[in-house]
């Protein structure tokens, strides 16, 4: 009877302290640990008493059963072990990042595209689920109209899926004209907890051939592009 009451008290204490802990009452962790240790002690006492009264076969059955339960627990223990051994850090099974992330906004034009670029903000601080508009101004310094495409990359590259970047398709910019458009930067999903800083690079290129990524003059010559009209 005493054992049952002890086990009940320990379990209720464990659940209550866990609830308080989850709700942010930091000292509750000590109560949680204390209740956990007490429950383990009570369980140990129960196992010891039970094993004592069992016959040899049942005792073996019980011990083997506990071994199975321990191996189940071991499968979970392998999670932090794996992260420590293979990545040098502990596992992060929870996904939400609670802190904001610094984002640097950078820009680049490909192969001397004759435009001037300015952005309204070069640094942002965004939390999970937040969004912000960044205004980009382009000024055409050429004597002809340009059709400009904007590509965006992130550093590290793996972070790109977390961003929801709303950008224009193709920007038509007449000669010597200026235009301004917004880019919406937001975190679509929770980001990894160890990410504190990232950068977004805005890359501008002319879709009519000049400055297309990877296709240099040497490439043009090699593929005789002018003769066969690849770029028409």
């Amino acid at each position: 009877m005493v054992l049952h009451l002890q086990a009940l008290a320990a379990t209720i204490g464990l659940v209550l302290s866990m609830l308080l802990w989850v709700r942010g009452a930091n000292p509750a962790i000590y109560a949680f640990i204390a209740c956990g240790v007490f429950l383990a002690y009570v369980t140990y006492g129960w196992i010891k008493d039970t094993i004592k009264v069992l016959d040899r076969t049942r005792r073996h059955g019980l011990i083997l059963g506990f071994f199975g339960v321990a191996m189940f627990a071991f499968s979970y223990a392998m999670v932090p072990l794996y992260h420590i051994l293979c990545h040098g850090n502990v596992a992060l099974p929870e996904s939400a990042s609670s802190h904001p992330v610094d984002i640097d906004i950078m820009f680049e034009k490909y192969r001397g595209l004759p435009i001037a670029i300015t952005v309204s903000e070069s640094q942002l601080e965004l939390g999970s689920g937040e969004s912000r508009l960044v205004y980009v101004t382009l000024e055409n310094h050429a004597n002809k109209a340009l059709d400009i495409k904007l590509s965006i990359s992130t550093n590290p590259r793996t972070i790109k899926p977390y961003f929801g970047l709303v950008t224009p398709d193709v920007i038509h910019l007449p000669a010597w004209e200026r235009t301004q458009f917004p880019i919406e930067v937001k975190f679509n999903a929770d980001v990894p907890d160890d990410l504190w800083q990232t950068a977004i690079l805005l890359l501008f290129q002319d879709i009519n051939g000049v400055g297309e990524l990877g296709k240099t003059d040497a490439w043009e010559k090699m593929h005789h592009a002018e003769q066969i009209g690849v770029r028409s």
Partner: peptide
């Protein structure tokens, strides 16, 4: 949870 999801700090390789 994200035991096997890189997006949440886990690892599919695990």
């Amino acid at each position: 949870t994200s035991f096997f999801s890189a997006a949440g700090g886990g690892d599919p390789l695990m």
